[in-house]
């Protein structure tokens, strides 16, 4: 026969510390998405791939005018965007699976395909 204690014991405190530490470090245990080798660009009703392995600058059409997709040392970003707020320029550079650049005014989506590990990363 044993009894269940209702008052906290030292072991409860130890468990509390353990759980608290695990909770605090849990974000670091998440694996980062694999580095992608290309991005998918959706713009002007079409979708095409752009390799990330070679540097380059390409025009991406949009209703407001063309933006420039810059590929540089394995990551992609938008530049010279004609949209008013330039949010898309600040969403890059992207390189890991699941990362995405969206320009709503100019209807452009650039994303790294592959198994995404995190839904979204706020910057």
């Amino acid at each position: 026969m044993m009894e269940v204690k209702t008052r906290p014991r030292i072991t409860d405190g130890a468990l509390l510390v353990l759980l608290a530490v695990f909770t605090a470090v849990s974000p670091r245990l998440l694996p980062a998405g694999a580095v992608g080798d290309r991005v998918l660009v959706q713009a002007g009703g079409k979708e095409w791939g752009v390799p990330l392995l070679e540097d380059g600058r390409r025009e991406v059409p949009g209703p407001l005018g063309p933006a420039v997709l810059v590929v540089e040392s394995g990551s992609a970003r938008l530049q010279n965007a004609p949209c008013p707020l330039k949010i898309c320029e600040r969403m890059g550079p992207i390189r890991r699976a699941g990362e995405v650049i969206v320009c709503l005014p100019n209807r452009i989506v650039v994303k790294v395909p592959g198994r995404e590990v995190v839904d979204a990363v706020t910057r």
């Binding site: 608290a20 605090a24 974000p27 590990v117």
Partner: peptide, 24 residues
């Protein structure tokens, strides 16, 4: 089918500790 849910762990974990103590 995405490990993104685990990003909720810090919030839910802290809440679980608090509600666990309250319920006890």
């Amino acid at each position: 089918r995405s490990a993104g849910l685990m990003a909720l762990l810090p919030f839910m974990g802290a809440a679980a500790i608090a509600t666990g103590i309250l319920n006890a």
